[in-house]
Each structure stands twice: as structure tokens, then as C-alpha cells.
Amino acid sequence: MSAPSKTDSAKRPVRLLRNLNAKIASIPMVATALVVFIGCTTWTVVHSFTSSKLLPKLDFVGWEQYDRLWGTRRWLVSIENLAWYGVCSMVLTLLIGFILAALLDRKVRFENTFRTILLYPFALSFIVTGLVWQWILNPDFGVQQVVRDWGWESFTFDPLYNPDIVIFGILIAGIWQGSGLIMVIMLAGLRGIDEDIWKAARVDGIPTWKTYVVVIIPMMRPVFVTALVLIASGIVKVYDLVVAQTSGGPGIASEVPAKYVYDKMFASQNLAQGFAASTMMLVSVIIILIPWAYLEFGGKKRG
């Protein structure tokens, strides 16, 4: 070690220069947080109150864009689709994810193989997912044709060509892609539960299914909440899947809000409509997040 310098370091250093390197290293984070997440979001919300068409401009028109938005059939269809897709996908993904995790948690042989097969769809993009299921659900060659070939001539299963049920055709693909993730999270949650709980339940003579319902699921509340938030924030963003699988068709039967936003902003040069629609998406995410944050932090206080 070099001899310590003889100068006194008695003066309190300038606050800004303390930890200077850490501050420099954090510039990208600060810039992202301020410019992109806060700045860009605010910009869009502000411009949703203008009449911007091809180019953004600041001539405020109040709630006009929102009035028009909620008077547009395509938007209403999008919202309705998202609601159906959202509710179904949330319930089914949670259910399937939990059941699969519970099955795998029963000390199954080849657990890794099963898990690998159930999770691989999550590695694939929504585009690939959408295109594969578009092909499988093709009425001339896919599932419908296979069943007809077996002899059931009148069997009809063409969700992608039937406006009434097209969103469920997308749902099939979405659940196939995403349920593996939820299974893995649930499995991690199940593994986090103390072995002794199971032993205690066995000593008390509680049947396995009842142990799950009465003991395990209540203990996994935080895991369920995390899974729910994850599914929910994914649902709002649904876009690629629809583009790949149906392009919003037939007609406008499978439109979703994210696609509405994209089309308004980048295809039909109606910027402010796009801004208003995306602001509505933001609002819905906030509505989902607030109860979650309440549960998280409220729960911590109680604990």
C-alpha cells in the first residue's frame, strides 16, 4: 500500500460528486425512466386530446377523440373481444397451469421431459404460434377435415372463419403458448411449500385433493396474484397473435385494441385516435395494477 496521503480529508465532499461513477452508470436507467416511460407516456396522453391526423399538433379538442372512439364499432368489437379473450384466458390459463403443476408435483418420473414439452411453446413467438394454429384450424385440411374423414361428415369446427367464435380460435393458440409459463410459476410456488405441511396433512388424514383446496391454494396466494398480473398485463398487449392468425378477420370480428392503435397510428394516419385508444389501454392496465399493488403492500402490512 502506498503511504496514505498526509492531507486531511476533513471537508465534507460535494454531495453530487459522491458515488459519481454509480450515478454515471445509472444515466441510461434515469433516461429510460424519465424520457421513455414518463415522457413518452405523458406525451401520448396529452396528444390524445388533440385533433392530430397525419402529424402530431397541439390543438386541443377536449374529449372529442374519446367520444369518437367509443362511437366506433371497430373499437367496441375490439373491447368486447379483449374482454372475452381476457376473462377466458385468465381463468383457463390459471386453471390449466395449476392443474398441470399439481400433477407434475406428484413426484412424477420424467418430470423434466414433461415440463420441457409443456413449456416449449413459450419459447416461440406469437407470430409462429399464430401461423401454426392458423394452419391446424384450417377447415379444409385441419382438425375439421380430420374428424370428417373419420366419418362424421357434418362436423364443423372452423373458428377462424366464423365471426361469432373467432376470438376463441385465437384463445386456443394463446393458451397453448402461455400456459406453460404459468405452470412453471405454479410449480415453483408448490415447491416452495414446506414438506412438513404435506406430512401434517397426511397425519391428520386429509385427502390429497382437499389438502390442495383447503391448505395449499390459500398458501399460494402470492403466486396466484403474480400469475394473474402476468396474464393480465399480457392480455392487454395481445397483438402479434391476432395479426398472424386472422389479421383481425373475418371482417373486423377478431380486432383487438392494440391492433386498433397500430392501424390508426401507422396505417390510417389518424394519430389522435390512436393516442386516445392507447391511453384507454393504459387506463385499463392501471385499473388492473391498483388492486394488485394494494394486495401486495396491504398484505405486507398485515404480515
Binding site: 445509472s26 436507467m29 434515469v30 429510460t32 425512466a33 424519465l34 421513455v36 416511460f37 414518463i38 415522457g39 413518452c40 407516456t41 406525451w43 401520448t44 396522453v45 396528444h47 402530431p56 398485463s233 392487454v236 398487449k237 385494441p257 392494440a258 392503435v261 397500430y262 397510428m265 394519430l271 390512436g274 393516442f275 385508444a277 392507447s278 391511453t279 389501454m281 393504459l282 392496465v285 395494477l289
Partner: peptide
């Protein structure tokens, strides 16, 4: 503070930020 904003930002739908970017 910035870290919290960053994490919350992950939940903002991308659509809101697309055009300003």
C-alpha cells in the same frame, strides 16, 4: 425512485409509447 419508475414502466402497454419514440 428511478428504479421504481423503471419497474412500473414495464407494465405500461408499449402502444402508449410507440409514436413518441
Amino acid at each position: 425512485v428511478f428504479f421504481t419508475i423503471l419497474i412500473l414502466g414495464a407494465f405500461i402497454p408499449y402502444q402508449v409509447m410507440l409514436y413518441p419514440i
